[in-house]
């Protein structure tokens, strides 16, 4: 399992980094923390590089290095990296420029596999997409953005599961909400949900939503199979059957103290592009962390 945690600033990224590292610990995943800096106009990019060289000769770090240093300090304070590296401190002078417009720091994790820090510059979606393709990440963890199309672009173009950290407070984090149906992807979402539930020692609320009263109590083999797996994992669960609009019901049930784990839409990318999708609508409107499993 490989996890990519996207941070953007010391001011706003703490919940993302916190939940991200908790998930990394739960999945024992190889983890990369990435900061994507602002895109520089191509007209001045070379001159800005020259100016940054000059700044370094006066002991100034290029923008973004301070964010990586903050992430390193967070990892140190929580003993998430090897003690020797904590003693050495943030190796800002040993940032590796890999020639692909990325600056890297390799660290050894304690609770999860290796932890890497990466600094990139450019369009956030394009850079995350490239990093996910390059590193074959299974889950990308990001904070909720105020930008209008950010959620859409994340779901549409990032080829990994997406965890959006929204108003995260681990004190309030009570249950996993698992909206499922008869489709294949529900099983994978359930497996992720079980891992999260086990990590936090919390239960799962399975939610199935039907359009009409008649189909509410229909037998559903896929749901039964998922219930069986959850039971075998030793996780306590409740199955709620609801009738109505899926988006409204999921948001209502999630309240403000659950983490939603659900599968991504199986519509074609073209349809999703123009019509949107149920996971996207939920992601845009909910007030809790949401993991969309692809």
């Amino acid at each position: 399992m490989k996890i990519l945690i996207a941070i953007g600033s010391k001011q706003y990224s703490k919940p993302t980094l916190h939940l991200g590292m908790e998930v990394a610990e739960a999945f024992k995943a190889k983890t990369t923390i990435i900061d994507v800096g602002e895109k520089v106009s191509e007209f001045s990019s070379q001159l800005v590089e020259l100016a940054k060289d000059q700044m370094e000769s006066w002991d100034f770090d290029p923008p973004g290095v301070d964010v990586l240093e903050w992430a390193f300090n967070y990892l140190s304070d929580n003993n998430l990296i090897d003690s020797k590296q904590i003693e050495t401190g943030f190796p800002k002078n040993r940032l590796i420029d890999d020639g692909e417009d990325r600056k890297l720091v390799y660290l050894s994790g304690t609770v999860c596999e290796d932890v890497n820090l990466i600094l990139r510059n450019g369009d956030i979606i394009a850079e995350l997409r490239e990093e996910v393709q390059y590193g074959n990440y299974d889950v990308t963890i990001v904070g909720k953005s105020q930008k209008r199309n950010m959620s859409h672009d994340l779901l549409q173009y990032i080829n990994s599961s997406i965890l959006v950290v929204n108003q995260y407070d681990n004190e309030k984090f009570k249950r996993v909400l698992l909206p499922i149906n008869n489709e294949d992807g529900s099983m994978k979402a359930a497996k992720y949900g079980i891992r999260v539930a086990l990590a936090y020692d919390i239960g799962i609320d399975i939610l199935t939503v039907s359009n009409d009263q008649k189909s509410i109590n229909d037998e559903n083999k896929q749901v039964d199979k998922i219930k069986k797996i959850i039971r075998r994992s030793g996780v306590e669960y409740v199955h709620e059957k609801e009738q109505g609009n899926t988006v409204e019901k999921v948001i209502e049930k999630a309240g403000d103290d659950k983490i939603i784990v659900m599968r991504s839409s199986d519509m074609s990318p073209l349809k999703r592009y123009f019509k949107g999708s149920i996971p996207l609508s939920i992601m845009n409107r909910c007030n809790v962390p949401i993991l969309i499993v692809k």
């Binding site: 520089v40 106009s41 007209f43 001045s44 001159l47 800005v48 100016a51 940054k52 700044m55 100034f60 923008p63």
Partner: peptide, 14 residues
């Protein structure tokens, strides 16, 4: 900040 290289350079200081 993008109008002239000088502006972009000082802007790059963050």
């Amino acid at each position: 900040a993008v109008a002239a290289p000088a502006c972009t350079i000082v802007y790059s200081s963050g």
